[in-house]
Simulated assay, not measured.
Amino acid sequence: MIPLQRVEISAQAQNLLKRWTQRVEGAGASGQAARELWGDAKAPKKHVRAALESMARGAVRCMYCDDSRGTDIDHFEPLERAPLRAFVWVNHLLACSFCNSNEKNRKYPVDAEGACLLVDPTAEDPADHLTLRLSVGTYDPLSPKGKETIQVFGLNRPELIKGRVDAFVRARSILRDWHGLHQDAVPEADLVAQALLDSPFIDVVHAMTRLKPGVAVIVVGEATVPALDTWRTVHSRSLRVGQQRVPGGTAGASCNKSVTDDTLADDNLPCQGQAARKSKAGPVRTMQNYALTWTDPTGTPRSSAVAYDQPSAQDRKAALEGDGCTNVQILAVRPGELPEPRG
Rank of each mutant, 00 (worst) to 15 (best):
T131Q: 13
L132Q: 05
L132I: 10
R133M: 13
L134V: 09
S135I: 11
S135V: 14
V136S: 15
V136L: 03
V136M: 07
G137P: 04
G137N: 04
G137W: 02
T138S: 02
T138A: 02
T138Q: 11
Y139A: 08
D140G: 00
D140A: 13
D140H: 09
P141I: 10
P141Q: 10
S143Q: 10
S143I: 09
S143F: 09
P144I: 00
P144W: 00
P144K: 04
P144G: 07
P144S: 07
K147N: 10
E148S: 14
T149I: 08
T149G: 06
I150P: 06
I150T: 08
I150C: 07
I150W: 04
Q151P: 00
V152S: 04
F153A: 08
F153R: 08
F153H: 15
G154A: 10
G154Q: 10
G154I: 09
G154V: 09
G154T: 09
N156I: 06
R157A: 09
R157W: 06
P158T: 12
E159Q: 15
E159N: 14
L160H: 12
L160E: 08
L160N: 11
I161K: 15
I161F: 01
I161W: 01
K162W: 03
G163P: 09
G163D: 03
G163Y: 01
R164G: 06
R164Y: 01
R164N: 04
R164P: 08
R164C: 04
V165S: 07
V165D: 04
V165N: 02
V165L: 08
D166Y: 04
A167G: 06
A167N: 06
A167R: 14
F168N: 12
F168C: 09
F168G: 08
R170M: 11
A171C: 15
A171S: 14
A171K: 02
R172H: 03
R172E: 09
R172M: 11
S173A: 15
S173M: 08
I174H: 03
L175G: 10
R176F: 00
R176P: 01
D177F: 04
D177H: 10
H179V: 02
H179C: 11
H179L: 02
G180F: 05
L181M: 14
L181A: 14
H182I: 00
H182K: 11
H182V: 00
Q183W: 02
Q183A: 12
Q183S: 12
Q183R: 15
Q183L: 15
D184F: 02
D184H: 09
D184P: 00
A185S: 12
V186L: 10
V186C: 07
P187F: 00
P187V: 01
P187D: 02
E188C: 00
E188D: 09
E188S: 05
A189H: 05
A189V: 01
A189T: 02
D190A: 06
D190F: 07
L191R: 13
L191A: 13
L191S: 13
A193T: 02
A193H: 03
Q194C: 06
A195T: 10
L196I: 00
L196T: 00
L196W: 01
L196K: 01
L196A: 08
L196P: 02
D198Q: 15
D198I: 05
S199C: 07
S199L: 01
P200L: 03
I202G: 03
